[in-house]
């Protein structure tokens, strides 16, 4: 990362990574939301044979992000597995890759609506939510009281801006002083515009950090369409 951005919540600095992961230098922790492993194979029973390479692609991206940030801890913010059958469907080589990843860092699987009980044999511990210093980490954003801070996923945020007559849309981190929502990391995950109803009432004056081809770009709310 040439020029890294910083997002500060309750005094803790977080660095949005080009891969869609979030790095917390103070805790040497890498946060990853909405991996949706085995989403590709999830429709197979209905006869929809999507290329079964999304898991491998996501894990390789994750491995590269780990390589760059060298975290001691790896925290998944839920919906890491697309459904309850993911563990059974995952290819042996991909499973080995996943285990190799979780072996390197202390791993935490926060549960999500897609994976209320993630597999227990892929390394790491499973919990519903956790605290990283003063910041709560959970899957689904909640209403916050004054002084509380939270990082979550679930909504798959994307933002669009207008420039030179073009509309440019990419997935993004979105945050105000209290709350940060992470983009989905998985290769087949779609994204939801931060101007849509699902985001109503969650943020005050926010910024977005849009994930471009080669860099992350910050835009204030006023520029986000």
């Amino acid at each position: 990362m040439s020029r890294s951005h910083r997002i500060t919540l309750s005094g803790v600095d977080f660095v949005p990574h080009l891969s869609g992961a979030l790095f917390a230098p103070d805790f040497e922790a890498l946060l990853v939301a909405d991996l949706h492993l085995e989403k590709g194979t999830s429709l197979a029973r209905r006869g929809v044979h999507l290329p079964p390479y999304d898991t491998r692609e996501s894990l390789l991206q994750l491995q590269a992000a780990i390589e760059e940030t060298q975290p001691r801890r790896l925290i998944f913010l839920g919906d890491s597995f697309h459904d309850g059958g993911a563990r059974e469907r995952i290819d042996a080589a991909d499973l080995a890759l996943l285990r190799a990843i979780t072996a390197v860092a202390e791993t935490v699987w926060i549960t999500g609506n897609h994976d209320p009980s993630p597999p227990q044999d892929v390394g790491g511990i499973i919990i519903e939510e956790m605290a990283l210093g003063p910041v709560t980490l959970r899957h689904h954003p909640r209403m916050l009281r004054d002084g509380e801070a939270e990082i979550s996923g679930h909504l798959h945020p994307a933002a669009a801006i207008h420039a030179r007559g073009h509309r440019i849309r990419c997935r993004c981190f979105i945050a105000d002083a209290q709350r940060l929502i992470m983009p989905a990391f998985g290769s087949y995950t779609g994204a939801l515009n931060v101007r849509s109803e699902a985001f109503d009432g969650l943020f005050g004056d926010f910024n977005v950090w849009m994930i471009g081809e080669k860099a992350v770009h910050r835009f204030p709310a006023a520029q986000v369409r």
Binding site: Y53, R56, E57, Y188, T189
Partner: peptide, 9 residues
């Protein structure tokens, strides 16, 4: 997304 993944793999 499918296109990108398929092209790589």
């Amino acid at each position: 997304l499918i296109y990108d993944v398929l092209r790589t793999h």
